[in-house]
């Protein structure tokens, strides 16, 4: 039986690897659609035909696209992402510090959002149909239906402009004390927590409600089990798989959220780096950032799928 699970997980991992390959190819193709010759653009004023030909040769631009893709891929695997067009620095150097910043932001958000949202989602499901459930539902639908920047502006208006609790903009350069740290992370983390929590609450609520509608829950109810016993002993253990699955899927919303939040709060992470790179059309940098995001997203949805496989008792 366990061999079955192992082979299913193996298959899922293989599929993810294949998807990553297709995705990286798609990113490569998209960034190479750019009209205009890279060498000419790079040289600018100094673009004599000889210089252009020389640079093309040096950058292997005359090779077929497939070779260039493979060369880029081989470099990426060994940690060599090429050099940025905009400032000639190795991309690995540009990204390293920023990557840590983004991971801190995402990690901190997850630590706050996950317990909060799980509590709200599960209690809303248990208290289904009550005023509490309706309020939670209205708030989550409200947050989900609007773009992240609207959530962010609302948070700034509320916490920074009217209540004056938090600063509107975050700086990461000068951190001397705990208060500095708090001031820096507060707004981005608060906003991201709203965005991600709304997703988790919705999905968790749906998962628990589905479990609560199972015949064995009705059976427990008919036997006279108390409400807390039904929820804690019967429903929750069985909805754990779907809940964790919902968690992994919801966390993938962090990626879309991070792009907007880092821009609006000027947070020096990878997403901000990428948005800036799009503005200057720094293609190697865009490719690398996009690849990092796709990888993160793929890892999350792969984890979600593997949990779905593991939590299906029929496969055990």
């Amino acid at each position: 039986m366990n061999a079955d699970i192992a082979s299913m997980i193996g298959k899922r991992l293989g599929l993810s690897a294949l998807t990553l390959l297709i995705v990286s190819f798609a990113v490569f193709v998209a960034t190479n659609l750019l009209p205009g010759d890279t060498a000419t653009i790079l040289l600018g004023q100094a673009a004599t035909p000889e210089a252009v030909a020389g640079l093309r040769q040096a950058m292997h631009l005359d090779d077929p696209a497939v070779f260039r893709f493979l060369r880029w891929l081989a470099g990426a695997v060994t940690g060599d992402f090429g050099t940025s067009y905009a400032n000639n620095m190795p991309i690995a150097t540009l990204i390293a510090g920023r990557f840590v910043n983004t991971m801190e932001l995402a990690g901190l958000t997850a630590v706050i959002a996950v317990p909060l949202a799980l509590t709200l989602g599960i209690t809303a499901a248990v208290l289904r149909g009550t005023l509490y459930d309706r309020i939670v539902a209205v708030l989550t639908i409200g947050v989900i239906s609007v773009p992240e920047f609207v959530v962010a502006s609302t948070a700034v208006l509320l916490f920074a402009v009217y209540l004056k609790w938090l600063p509107a903009i975050s700086f990461v350069n000068e951190v001397h004390s705990l208060t500095d740290l708090l001031r820096m992370y507060a707004m981005p983390v608060v906003t991201l927590t709203f965005v991600v929590s709304a997703q988790i609450i919705r999905m968790t609520r749906a998962a628990v409600i589905e479990t609560l509608s199972m015949p064995y829950v009705e059976m427990a109810l008919l036997k006279g089990a108390s409400r807390s016993r039904i929820v804690l002993r019967h429903a929750l253990p069985n909805s754990l798989g779907p809940i964790v699955n919902a968690l992994a899927l919801s966390l993938s919303y962090l990626i879309g959220g991070v792009i907007i939040i880092e821009t609006i709060f000027n947070y020096p992470g990878i997403a901000k780096l990428m948005v800036d790179a799009v503005a200057t059309r720094d293609l190697p940098l865009i490719q690398t950032c996009a690849l990092i995001f796709c990888l993160g997203y793929l890892i999350l949805i792969t984890i979600a799928d593997i949990i779905a496989i593991l939590s299906n008792p029929r496969l055990r």
Binding site: I22, A30, L34, I255, C294
Partner: peptide
């Protein structure tokens, strides 16, 4: 298979990359 691969690119990221390109 192709559609599954495309769906695993986060939409905002996809938008950024394509806008950068075209």
């Amino acid at each position: 298979r192709l559609m599954d691969a495309l769906i695993s690119i986060p939409s905002k990221l996809f938008g950024l990359v394509v806008v950068a390109a075209v």
